[in-house]
């Protein structure tokens, strides 16, 4: 009996406890502040890019921007953006030529052909491949892939677009493979069994049933892969060099947008110069490209998701 009154007393005491109620009301607000940080980060990125890019665009005529002459450090500087856009597109294209076929076929293999045992071994290794820092891939491209390619292509320059493109593709394989595999795994077994019962071979099931059914997810994985390739920095900064020539020759050195940013900040362009603001203009363009790609991928996933 005494115990009971004690408990009741404690409850009453606790209910009257203003401190507890204060904390109870305070915590959601504290958490809200934390949740706002991520939104503030986005706003911060957009603002810093736009404000400093504006200073660049207000001083450089559009005709100069859309020219092929990029010479930010010369006595008579010129800020044509086309060479680095060209470099970005070419290296990304090479990367996707590696990542899409290998990633997709590996995904088909893991999802449709491999035994559980193989899958259990291969998937963690893919995760390791995905977890290797890109600087390591950059070193690999420069110190191994370029010399290797030199044996096949004698007139390859020490810094070129081909080698980092291939290595970037290898880096993206796990991304494409795991996202595509997820998409294929989510295709219900009934479809697989139905096709097999009709006498289709495993390959026919994979190519005519599973891949079409999971196509939205596979396409999204390609787009996310391209977005990764466009935004990738260290591999191209190391192995592709800093030549600002406008060229389509993949055996030559080319600079990408990301490598331009990295070269310039680690160079001697001080704050307030046109070269410094050009970083933000390139950054803004890069941000818009990747954001656009990511939004498309999200849209495809949402819009074309097959519900079974």
């Amino acid at each position: 009996m005494e115990n009971q009154t004690n408990v009741r007393g404690i409850i009453k005491k606790n209910l009257a406890n203003d401190k507890g109620r204060f904390v109870e009301n305070l915590m959601p607000r504290v958490f809200l502040v934390a949740a706002s940080i991520s939104i503030l980060t986005t706003i911060g990125i957009v603002l810093t890019l736009i404000l400093d890019a504006y200073k660049f665009f207000s001083q450089v005529p559009l005709r100069e921007i859309f020219s092929t002459k990029l010479a930010p450090l010369s006595a008579n500087p010129s800020f044509g953006i086309l060479p680095i856009i060209n470099g970005t597109i070419i290296t990304s294209f090479i990367a996707m030529c590696v990542a899409i076929p290998v990633g997709l076929t590996a995904a088909i293999y893991l999802s449709e052909f491999a035994s559980d045992k193989v899958r259990r071994i291969v998937k963690p290794i893919m995760e390791v491949l995905a977890g290797i820092p890109t600087i390591v891939y950059g070193f690999f491209a420069y110190s191994f892939v370029t010399p290797l390619l030199l044996l096949l292509i004698p007139n390859l320059e020490a810094k070129n677009a081909l080698s980092p493109g291939i290595v970037m593709g290898i880096m993206i394989i796990p991304l494409v493979a795991s996202l595509s595999e997820d998409a294929m795994n989510s295709v219900p077994n009934a479809l697989r069994e139905g096709a097999l019962a009709l006498g289709a071979t495993k390959l026919e099931v994979a190519l005519k049933v599973i891949v079409p059914a999971g196509f939205s997810g596979i396409l999204a994985s390609f787009i996310l892969g391209i977005s990764r390739a466009i935004g990738e920095t260290m591999i191209v900064a190391i192995a592709s060099g800093s030549s600002k020539n406008f060229t389509f020759d993949i055996t030559q050195s080319m600079q990408t947008m990301t490598a331009y940013i990295v070269e310039f900040t680690s160079g001697d362009a001080g704050s307030g110069t046109l070269g410094y603001y050009s970083l933000y203009a390139v950054g803004l363009l890069l941000f818009s490209f990747t954001l656009f790609m990511n939004l498309i991928a999200q849209y495809i996933l949402k819009r074309f998701r097959e519900e079974y």
Binding site: A35, S38, I45, G231, L291, Q298
Partner: peptide, 28 residues
């Protein structure tokens, strides 16, 4: 709505190239 907004924001932030974060850090 706030949750879905923050979620979308976070998945987009995850796709922003790391150099861009460098520019943000350099400025801010």
């Amino acid at each position: 709505k706030f949750q879905s907004f923050v979620k979308m924001n976070i998945s987009n932030l995850a796709g922003v190239p790391s150099v861009i974060f460098g520019l943000l850090g350099l400025t801010v």
